[in-house]
Amino acid sequence: MSPVTPRLEALPPEDGVWLEVDVARQVLHVWRGRECLETHPASTAAAGVGQAEGSGGTPLGWHYIRAVIGAGMPSGSVFRGRRPTGELYSPALAADYPERDWILTRIFWLCGLERGLNRGGSVDSQRRYIYLHGTPESEPMGRPASHGCIRLRDATLLRLGELAPSGTPVWLHA
């Protein structure tokens, strides 16, 4: 398997771990150099791709994981405003709060690396609060459904916690 080739000057080191989010295929690949280690289903924005604040789209280009939030928290932990609420997700909790966009288990907060594309001004991914984060099992994978973030299964996030610390490069493309 080979990723769509990013600009050569932007490629991570040969032996480094990096993540690829293929928006067209709705998957996340974990790479070590040029070797694909794992592939996981994902769900990006229902609005498609979009760089601008307020677009509701998933931003493209090179990012890095600015922070990993929730290490040590149990699977299914609920987050609001990047803070654990003390709740664990359940269908009963979802029924009590049907309006919530559930952010579960871990947050991998992304920061753009490309000025004018995903960094700075109205296109800043970090200020847009773009994350890789968990979602309930009832939410679909493999098709766009988020509000801009990249939704993943809890087990995938726990695995990424082992492989992709803060500073890990992440390439989002359509």
Rank of each mutant, 00 (worst) to 15 (best):
D96Q: 13
V123I: 12
T105Q: 07
S43Y: 02
D101Q: 14
S77G: 10
R106S: 06
G134K: 03
S138E: 14
I150E: 06
W102D: 05
V170Y: 03
G50H: 04
L132Q: 03
E9C: 12
T168G: 01
H29S: 15
H133K: 00
C111K: 03
Y64H: 07
V68I: 06
P74V: 15
G112F: 00
G56R: 09
V78G: 07
T135Y: 04
P6Q: 12
P84K: 03
G161R: 08
Y64F: 08
G167H: 07
R143Y: 09
G76F: 13
D154L: 03
L88V: 07
Q51C: 01
G81C: 08
S2N: 14
A92R: 06
G48W: 01
S2Y: 11
F79M: 01
L104V: 08
T85C: 01
Y97I: 12
P98E: 12
L117F: 06
W62Y: 02
L8R: 14
R83A: 07
G167E: 03
P59Q: 06
H29L: 13
A155R: 10
M1F: 14
A42E: 04
P13C: 14
A45D: 01
P165C: 09
V68P: 01
P169R: 04
A164D: 10
R82P: 01
Q51T: 06
L60V: 12
S2H: 13
C36N: 15
R83P: 02
G86H: 02
H133N: 02
P84G: 02
A155I: 11
I150S: 00
P140F: 08
R83M: 05
V30H: 13
A155H: 09
S75W: 10
T39Y: 11
S90V: 04
H173C: 00
M73T: 14
Y97V: 10
I130G: 00
E20L: 08
L104F: 05
L37Q: 15
R82I: 02
M141R: 09
P84M: 04
L8S: 15
R127W: 07
C111M: 08
